[in-house]
Each structure stands twice: as C-alpha cells, then as structure tokens.
Amino acid sequence: MIKVQFAATPERWETYAEPMRAGFSNAGLDVDLRVDHTPDAVDYVIYAPNGPLKDFSPYTSCKAVLSLWAGVEKVVGNTSLTMPLCRMVDPGLTAGMVEWVAGHVLRYHLDIDRSIATQDQWQPRVPPLAMERPVTVLGLGALGRACAETLAQLGFPVTGWSRSPKVIEGITCQHGDDGLTRALAGAEIVVLLLPDTPATENMLNAETLARLPRGARIINPGRGPLIDDDALLAALDSGQIAHATLDVFRIEPLPAEHRYWAHPNVTVTPHIAAETRVVTSAQVIAENIRRGEAGEPFLHLVDRELGY
C-alpha cells in the first residue's frame, strides 16, 4: 500500500480527502491517505505552503512532494526538501485563469468600465476590433501559453515573452532583454503570468513601464512581486498607465491603507484569478503517484535552479 501524507490546512483536508481517494481509486492505486502518517514511512507528500509542514528531513522514504499550488516560491528554497518537488498544473486551474484573463482583457478592450460610468449620458463610443488591439503576455508557461492562445483565438494580435525561446503557433514569441523591449513596444494591454523568482522581481518597473505606449493597461494575475508598486502608482498618476487590474500582491490580504485600494485607476481583486480545483487536481496528483510507482518521469517537476 502506498502511504501518502496530506500536509495542508485542516479545511483543505476536509475538502480534498474524498476527491483524492476517488482519484486514487480511479487510477487503480492502493493508497493510504492520512494527515498523521509516521514521517519515515511516507511515500509521497501532498503539500500546500501554508500548511504545517516546514521540515521535510524526517520524510526519509518520500519519493516526491506534490504541491497543490502552482507557485512554489515559498518552498523551493527549503534546504530540507531534497526529494523531487512537483508544482500543480491543474486543467481546472488553467481554465479558470484563462476565463479570468480573457474577461478582463475584453473588459479593457470594450471599455466596459467607462460605458457603465457614463450609461446615463448617451456617449456612443465604438471600440476598435480585437485585431487592432495588441496584447502582450509576459510568461509563456502552462498558464501564460493557454491565455495567449485563447486571446489569439479571439482575434487579438498577441505577443508572448519568456526567458527562454518558445515557438507557439499564432503567437509572436520574444525572449531575453531585447525581446522584452520588443514585447512591450506597442502593447496596449499587458498580462503578467510569470513565476516569482529573483530574475522576475520588479519586471514592471519605471523603465519597463515607460517602454509601453501611453495609456496602456496592466493585468496581473501572476505574482505580486512582478511589479514595482511605487513605479506603477507613479505611472498611473502620470497617465502613462491608464488602469491596472491586480489580483496578487506582495502582502496578502492587501493592507487597508495601501494606495491601490483608493486609486481611481486600479481594480483590486482578492487573489481569485485561478484556484486549484479539487477534482482535477486530485487527478493530477494521482497521475504523478502512478508515474512515481511505475518509474516514469514526474509531471511538472520543479527546476530548483530556475525556481519553478
């Protein structure tokens, strides 16, 4: 029997226990899933960074730590975590992110906020077609690629940027420092879907924000540290950036005194762009355990050097 430790918050256990067991059963796995296994007997750990587990060293037989979160920045530097670490790439989470991003891109594209604000003034204003609205997606991992492809299908000319070269049909792909300059030039809407690493911190700063056309709009469902907050606020105040929709922040919940709350050109959402979905994430976890038992490569294995 495969011994699996569930190391997340108590409310997660209540939500996930039965769907996880169903996922294991459907995958033909004989799993003993608990929150209280003896650490040295555990084969796999299902993990969330906000749970109680901080020291992995007692898990001497553990074959892999399987995260319930897409982001691993809170655990990737843990020196006691010496076994393979897999992040969550959940089809349900991906679908949720695609829907959220597409909705907010269309909200900006169609100028829905202005239409609502002036609905009693009868001020007709016809938006351009999607083909006339360049969009740039920073980050072409699983989530970024899915969002970029959906926006391209909607007719937007989409440029994607990544640290390393990528080829995606229908997307103009850029990479590296020069590619970032090209990706930002002309982008009327920018979507941030990069991981949180030292290399991506403050990716949008005073210099990069200045490369955008005046009046560009920012959407950040990725990670809070991707944006230099002071630089973004200055760009919003000057009109260089017309509006920002922000779902993630350096400190969460966003402190009540933060300027983002009161800024007329900022929309704050409470980290809801994408959430791990119980049933589909259980299927991903089950598949990775099946792979581990079969000696096959794990899905979504984290590169410790890159940090994701």
Rank of each mutant, 00 (worst) to 15 (best):
G71H: 05
D40C: 08
G28W: 07
D113G: 06
R133N: 13
R107L: 14
T159F: 04
V42H: 01
E132H: 15
L53P: 01
R133T: 14
D43G: 10
A152P: 03
V105K: 03
L53S: 08
S115P: 02
M88L: 13
D40H: 13
Y108M: 11
G92D: 09
C62R: 01
L138F: 07
L81S: 05
T79R: 15
C86P: 00
Y59H: 03
Q153I: 09
F56K: 02
Q123W: 09
A102F: 09
T118L: 14
T118C: 10
S61F: 07
V65T: 12
D120I: 09
V137R: 00
G96W: 01
W69E: 12
L85V: 07
S57N: 05
Y44A: 00
P157S: 10
G160P: 04
A102Y: 11
V75E: 08
R133P: 01
G92I: 05
V101W: 06
R145L: 03
V72R: 00
A102Q: 10
P134N: 07
P134C: 04
P49D: 14
A102D: 06
A64G: 04
P128I: 12
L129K: 14
A117C: 05
E73V: 03
A102K: 12
G77T: 08
V135Q: 05
A64S: 06
L138K: 02
V101T: 05
P127W: 10
L33Q: 01
H109S: 12
L53T: 09
G155W: 10
L143V: 01
D30M: 07
L66D: 00
R163C: 08
N50K: 14
V75L: 09
T136I: 04
P124R: 09
S162P: 05
T136K: 00
S115K: 15
P39A: 08
A64W: 11
K54T: 15
S80D: 08
Q123S: 12
R163H: 12
D55A: 09
R133I: 09
C86Y: 04
T150I: 13
G92F: 12
I46H: 06
D36M: 06
T159M: 10
D32Q: 15
G71E: 04
E132A: 11
A146W: 06
T38M: 14
L53Y: 05
D36E: 12
L81V: 04
R125A: 15
P58L: 08
R87A: 03
S67M: 01
H37T: 11
K54P: 10
D40V: 06
V158H: 03
T118G: 09
T136M: 03
T94A: 11
V35D: 05
E73P: 00
L106V: 13
L81G: 06
G96M: 04
V42P: 00
L140R: 05
T136H: 07
R107K: 15
I116R: 14
D113R: 12
L106W: 09
S115R: 15
L106R: 10
I112E: 10
L29D: 02
G103E: 05
N50D: 13
C86Q: 00
A41G: 10
Q119K: 15
R87K: 15
L66A: 05
V31I: 04
G28Y: 07
V105P: 01
M83R: 04
D30S: 12
L33T: 03
D40I: 08
L154H: 10
